[in-house]
Design a binder for these strands. Sequence first.
DNA 1: TTGAAAGCGTTACCAT
DNA 2: ATGGTAACGCTTTCAA
Lengths: 351, 351
Amino acid sequence: MITVKDIARRAGVSLGTVDRVLHNRGKVAPDTEARVREAIHELSYTPNVHARNLSHGRVFVIEVLIPHLQSDGGYWAEPYRGMQRAFARLNMNNLEVRTSFFNRYNEQSFVDCLDSIFNVGGDAPAPDGLLVAPVVSVESQRVLAERIAQRNIASVAFDSRLHGTDIPFVGQDPRQGGRVAGRLAKLMRDGGSSVASVTLGRVDLHLLERANAFREYWAEISSGDIYDLSLLDGSEEEYRDELVTRLQEIGADLGAVFMTNASADLLAQALAIIGIRRHIPIIGYDLLAQNAQLLREGRIDAIISQRPETQGYEAAHMLARHLAFGTDMDAEVLMPVEIVLPENMDSFQSE
Amino acid sequence: MITVKDIARRAGVSLGTVDRVLHNRGKVAPDTEARVREAIHELSYTPNVHARNLSHGRVFVIEVLIPHLQSDGGYWAEPYRGMQRAFARLNMNNLEVRTSFFNRYNEQSFVDCLDSIFNVGGDAPAPDGLLVAPVVSVESQRVLAERIAQRNIASVAFDSRLHGTDIPFVGQDPRQGGRVAGRLAKLMRDGGSSVASVTLGRVDLHLLERANAFREYWAEISSGDIYDLSLLDGSEEEYRDELVTRLQEIGADLGAVFMTNASADLLAQALAIIGIRRHIPIIGYDLLAQNAQLLREGRIDAIISQRPETQGYEAAHMLARHLAFGTDMDAEVLMPVEIVLPENMDSFQSE
DNA sequence: TTGAAAGCGTTACCAT
DNA sequence: ATGGTAACGCTTTCAA
């Protein structure tokens, strides 16, 4: 193993000088620097991570900014679990992880979190790294981006991109998901040439893109109609009743339905109420407990998954490596579009 | 951060004694030991990985035992790549990785590798860890198991289990793969109620199980016939001709074909030669370059993948962690059964 | 601009 | 059976 000592000897300088060159902390004569760099190159030196971390003894603070784990059907617990797995695996004792939970349906809650994290007006230090699911309005995203840029904090966005920035992203391409849903609708439908995509809850760029891609795919492969049922607000009952009304309007030509976010349950209920004789396949999103149950019972027919646990794992791992080992971060890490059927769902459970 | 120093002080002993307790190297009075253990517990001490690795300065040798990367359509390059990624990510400088490639169609080649690795008759040290794809005869597996047991080497089997041992396994459950193939056949078939599974090349327990599960699944959901085309030996032309003959015998009732290992190409050719008017879907296995090409061109219809890259990554990571950090290994890490269609194949490419 | 030396937490060895 | 201490490779501080 090549150490700083070897380089120092080879370049005819001291350890201190080598270190200064390694970390560009100036105060070193040009020709000395050249000699050192040459030695580093020739001996192909790689720093010893353990010695480095042991020595500087620095503790990195990573802040996780994520919606409440119970919200969205428990979806966020998945990436959160992945993050914990990553931190546990790295088992570094110089990593301190803090978590702030926000309510993604209340912008103020998100902004409050930001203020507290970045300690507006205070003097406590900002975190060294940030893991954030920027599932908020474009406006709030802008505030976040500003804060990050100001303090120059190493950050990773997971689940959704941080709009208008080049901050590393770990998640799925929503358009691919929509297309795959279209293909599954085609495969599974048993008569009926029109399809519908359903989105419940407030507007979300990610879901919008999924729905659009679904629509475009269907237009490519079929001449059937495409209906877009986006219901913004309401109680579960209102949602269901509205779905019944709208689906009934579509009528007998309905071939399949794509649910762009969780709560496929309501959709299954609505279809049951309408009572079409022919089976209308439902394609849902995300392998949550409830969806898994529906799939197992045959009340929905397929689920598209975006590997949320892996998203969290990869995001956390990448950030921690960056902080502790100084490695570069990827601009984006895309998750595959996974097709879950009753036959392979068990193989996903352990994840 | 709690250090050994803190424990030593708390227990009123020296560092040396604490270390002896931590590593059970005896020579410590029962009551002293008790005091130390109590201190460890009370202060909830966790060793500093960096200091540990830096200190003992030990280099762990990991041996990778894998079929030639070019064989089996380049399949083995995938897990191999995953292993390299794992080692690179861990970027530990106290890990030395060696690789032995064997010819899985020549048992002697495997046994020779074993002899050289375990240095039969020599005095060079055996490796500290072993990553092996035991895709050989049960007999050779037994030899391997014996060698591992003899020297008590930390080992992980990937792709296939090491028969008759409880050595940690990273891979896919072959039965689940077979069932999913059955479901896809059902979904994609366009008339025809019988199906066939095709296996080319020598007998392999893993593939056999896949084919059996496929057969059983089809029997559950359909009354159509199931044909099992296992061709043991031959050139590509012989395989193809034989396939043509056998498939023609099945005739017009053929609904879909499942190819349990790669080389779906020959199958596509055979079906083209027969020239059935109706489209006969082909379900292939493993997202190799050739299979991907076939899928893209629409010459096969679906591929089931077992995440070979991840298999390698997880296997290597688990073993390295075990050696360097002393963590426990999981008894088995199962890969999900992934369904790849033209619509989502791009999302798998980056892997 | 450069060098020397202390210290990070752990292990291993030698002396008691 | 126990304590003391050097060493691992690197960073940081202080002096020159």
